[in-house]
Simulated scan of single mutants.
Amino acid sequence: MEGKKVLVVDDEPFAQNLLKMLYGVLKVECIVVANGKEALEEYQKSANFVHILMDIHMPIMDGYDSTKQIRLHEKAKGLPRCKILGLSGDGDPKTKAACISAGMDDLLVKPLKKEQLQQFL
Score class of each variant (00 low, 15 high):
residue 1 M to L: 12
residue 4 K to I: 02
residue 4 K to T: 04
residue 5 K to Q: 12
residue 6 V to K: 09
residue 7 L to Y: 13
residue 8 V to R: 10
residue 8 V to H: 12
residue 8 V to L: 14
residue 9 V to M: 15
residue 10 D to P: 07
residue 11 D to R: 12
residue 15 A to M: 15
residue 18 L to W: 09
residue 22 L to V: 00
residue 29 E to M: 06
residue 32 V to N: 08
residue 34 A to I: 07
residue 34 A to V: 09
residue 35 N to Y: 13
residue 37 K to L: 14
residue 37 K to G: 11
residue 40 L to H: 05
residue 40 L to N: 01
residue 40 L to R: 05
residue 43 Y to C: 02
residue 43 Y to W: 07
residue 43 Y to S: 10
residue 46 S to N: 15
residue 47 A to N: 05
residue 48 N to T: 01
residue 53 L to N: 09
residue 53 L to H: 06
residue 58 M to R: 14
residue 58 M to V: 09
residue 59 P to Y: 06
residue 62 D to I: 04
residue 62 D to E: 12
residue 62 D to T: 04
residue 66 S to D: 07
residue 68 K to N: 04
residue 69 Q to I: 00
residue 71 R to D: 07
residue 73 H to G: 00
residue 74 E to Q: 03
residue 75 K to W: 05
residue 77 K to F: 02
residue 78 G to I: 02
residue 78 G to H: 07
residue 81 R to S: 06
residue 86 G to E: 09
residue 86 G to H: 12
residue 89 G to T: 13
residue 90 D to T: 02
residue 90 D to R: 09
residue 93 P to R: 11
residue 94 K to G: 03
residue 96 K to D: 02
residue 96 K to N: 04
residue 97 A to Y: 08
residue 97 A to V: 02
residue 98 A to C: 13
residue 99 C to I: 06
residue 100 I to W: 09
residue 102 A to L: 07
residue 108 L to I: 02
residue 110 K to Q: 13
residue 113 K to Y: 13
residue 115 E to Y: 02
residue 118 Q to M: 08
residue 119 Q to C: 07
residue 119 Q to W: 05
residue 120 F to T: 00
residue 121 L to Y: 01
